[in-house]
């Protein structure tokens, strides 16, 4: 990976995470530059989702450092309310997209998008509305602004969830298996939105099972297994000529004859 000298957007140094006796992240180092798109692939239980959730501090890490644009995310020195304030502020700069969308069912599509800017940034109702409509337009759902999540398809829900995350103008977007819960025919519409973001040079970390999409959209690809990064390379190289046997084995299983 070509390393620029500017501050990386996201940086992980020696990140370790345990669930009880089980070590799920065994010392991860990672550097994501501004505008870079990184895909993380690997079998379930490899730690790839935990890694992504750790960056957002949805999982608190046990060791190591996580930096967002030079600011430390995990702060073992801060306790209680002080940490609470710190992490809430940090999270406003990160957009997270979940496998199961987690749209707020009691709010309309537009309200889902505008809630955070209104309540956290004190944006006026009319400004928030304009922003919300702009983002819904961007994900192709302006006509569903007044609809409630229960009336949307899975693909539409995920597009709203992306718009909701974008509403805070995040520095980086984290996608945690954003298309895994979707019916196959709905995957494309979400992928198109993500590709649109890539073209606008949004910094993105994508945990995915969609090998073709990962290869197509990302600048750098990582294969994780057993809590370690087994191999990281350009997507072309990683998907066509992986160096490690574990990677080859995983890709053979998931790509079949197309590899």
């Amino acid at each position: 990976m070509t390393q620029s000298t500017e501050t990386p957007m996201v940086e992980l140094k020696g990140v370790k995470k345990r669930f009880g006796d089980l070590e799920v992240l065994k010392g991860i180092d990672l550097r994501v530059d501004r505008g870079q798109i990184i895909s993380i692939i690997g079998p379930s239980g490899s730690g790839k989702s935990t890694l992504l959730r750790s960056i957002n501090n949805l999982e608190a890490i046990d060791e190591g450092t996580i930096l967002l644009d030079g600011v430390q995310v995990n702060r073992p020195d801060l306790k209680g309310l002080a940490f609470e304030r710190h992490i809430n502020h940090i999270r406003q700069n990160m957009g997270m997209v979940f496998q199961h969308f987690n749209l707020f069912p009691h709010l309309s599509t537009l309200e889902n998008v505008t809630l955070a800017p209104r309540k956290l940034k004190g944006m006026s109702a009319s400004d928030a509305r304009a922003l919300g409509m702009e983002l819904l337009e961007r994900v192709g759902l302006a006509d569903k602004a007044q609809a409630y999540p229960s009336a949307l398809s899975g693909g539409q829900k995920q597009r709203v969830a992306i718009a909701r995350a974008l509403a805070m103008r995040p520095k980086v977007m984290l996608f945690d298996e954003a298309t895994s819960a979707l019916d196959p025919e709905l995957v494309d519409e979400v992928n198109r939105v993500m590709k649109g973001l890539a073209e606008e040079h949004m910094t993105m970390l994508i945990v995915t099972h969609e090998m073709a999409f990962a290869r197509d959209v990302s600048d750098w690809a990582m294969f994780m297994d057993g809590g370690v990064v087994v191999e990281a390379n350009t997507p072309d190289r990683l998907f066509s000529h992986p160096d490690q046997e574990r990677t080859q084995h995983f890709l053979r299983k998931h790509l079949g004859a197309h590899a």
Binding site: L58, N88, Q92, G95, N102, F104, L120, A165
Partner: peptide
């Protein structure tokens, strides 16, 4: 997941309770 989504946007515990959890 509702709690996680809200917290990931930057809402605190009480704000999450008020805007997201209690209405549901």
């Amino acid at each position: 997941g509702q709690n996680e989504a809200s917290r990931s946007l930057g809402f605190g515990r009480l704000e999450t309770l008020r805007h997201i959890i209690l209405p549901q």
